[in-house]
Simulated scan of single mutants.
Amino acid sequence: MKLLRDMLDKQVVDREQVKIGKLDGLVAELRPGKPPRIIAIEVGSVTLARRLGRLPGQWMARLAAKLGGERHARPHRIPWSKVRDIGVDIEFDIDVRETAIFDWQDWLRDHVIGRIPGA
């Protein structure tokens, strides 16, 4: 399997089939004398911006920290050990409601979208 080609931008779902987003990055552990080992995946705007370069990544991290606090300046990581299935979607054995992945989406719904008449 060619990891970057076959996995990046695939849909990520939790154990209840709730869509988390697209896989934006892979985190590898470099080991002396051995091949690299994937230890986690990353999802979120910070990782996606980093794919465009160092400056867009830094800009997005600062923006995320300003809007959502320091914990949002770092990408959301899901341990590779939680991978359940790699098929059309990448399925993880986690409950997305127990993570901070949807914090920004929830804030936007409560403070902006919910105030639009007829929303």
Rank of each mutant, 00 (worst) to 15 (best):
W59R: 13
H111L: 12
L30W: 09
P35C: 00
E16T: 02
R54P: 02
E91F: 03
M7R: 11
P36N: 06
P79N: 06
V83E: 03
E70V: 05
D95T: 01
V112T: 13
R115C: 11
G53Q: 09
H72K: 10
P75T: 06
L8V: 14
W80T: 00
K82I: 00
I94P: 05
K19P: 12
A61E: 11
P56T: 08
P79M: 01
M60E: 10
R15C: 10
P117Y: 03
T99G: 12
D103L: 10
L52I: 08
A61K: 12
E29P: 02
T99R: 13
K66G: 03
I116M: 15
G33T: 00
P56K: 04
V88M: 10
K19Y: 11
R31N: 11
L26Q: 05
E70R: 05
P56C: 05
K66I: 01
G118R: 02
I39G: 06
R71E: 08
L26C: 12
W59D: 06
M60V: 10
L26D: 03
D14H: 02
I94T: 04
D110K: 15
L52W: 12
E91C: 08
V83A: 02
R5L: 07
D9E: 14
D103H: 10
I78E: 00
L67A: 07
R62F: 11
D93S: 11
W107H: 11
V88Q: 09
